[in-house]
């Protein structure tokens, strides 16, 4: 039996990866089970985007943004931190475990952290197993 790797959706703020090598890796060499959604700021990530990913079958959600006070738009990441962490709690109440969320606020001098984070997250998700709840979406966004 071929075991499928957990599907991960990575929401990434375009300013948070200061290292261009890491950015290049994220854009071109991501493993197939990770889908990158690059946004202009972590504050732009509407809970609806995350819910769409969850309903579309994502086993894990990773959100990467800038450190507090390092936001290109001053306070987009503060907004994201409050709303998305609460949204994560809320989904936890409705059947999507909060262990399937990872928030990481990138420091400017971090190099090669995103790869190790993704590997670790993937390991954790494999332990948790398949995600049966809220996986309900049947129509495709691309056709619309």
């Amino acid at each position: 039996m071929i075991r499928k790797k957990p599907a991960i959706v990575l929401f990434q703020c375009q300013y948070c990866l200061a290292s261009s090598m890491d950015q290049y890796w994220v854009e071109t060499e991501l493993p197939e089970n990770v889908k990158l959604i690059k946004v202009s700021c972590s504050g732009r990530i509407d809970p609806l985007y995350i819910l769409n990913a969850v309903q579309g079958g994502a086993d894990g959600i990773m959100v990467c943004g800038c450190m507090p006070e390092k936001c290109h738009y001053k306070e987009g990441n503060l907004h994201a931190r409050r709303t998305l962490s609460e949204f994560c709690n809320f989904l936890n109440l409705l059947g999507y475990s909060q262990d399937r969320f990872v928030f990481h606020w990138m420091n400017i001098d971090e190099r090669g952290v995103i790869q190790s984070l993704l590997t670790e997250f993937e390991k954790n998700l494999e332990k948790l197993g398949a995600q049966p709840h809220l996986k309900t979406r049947t129509f495709s966004q691309e056709k619309a």
């Binding site: 809970p47 609806l48 819910l51 809320f90 989904l91 309900t136 979406r137 129509f139 966004q141």
Partner: peptide, 26 residues
């Protein structure tokens, strides 16, 4: 366009409506 939430009465649309409607009220 884009259609964020399915507008028919299938489970995806129903659940998304209830989750996001409630979350907007936080």
């Amino acid at each position: 366009r884009p259609q964020w939430v399915d507008s028919t009465i299938d489970p995806a649309g129903q659940q998304a409506w209830h989750i996001i409607r409630a979350f907007h009220q936080t």
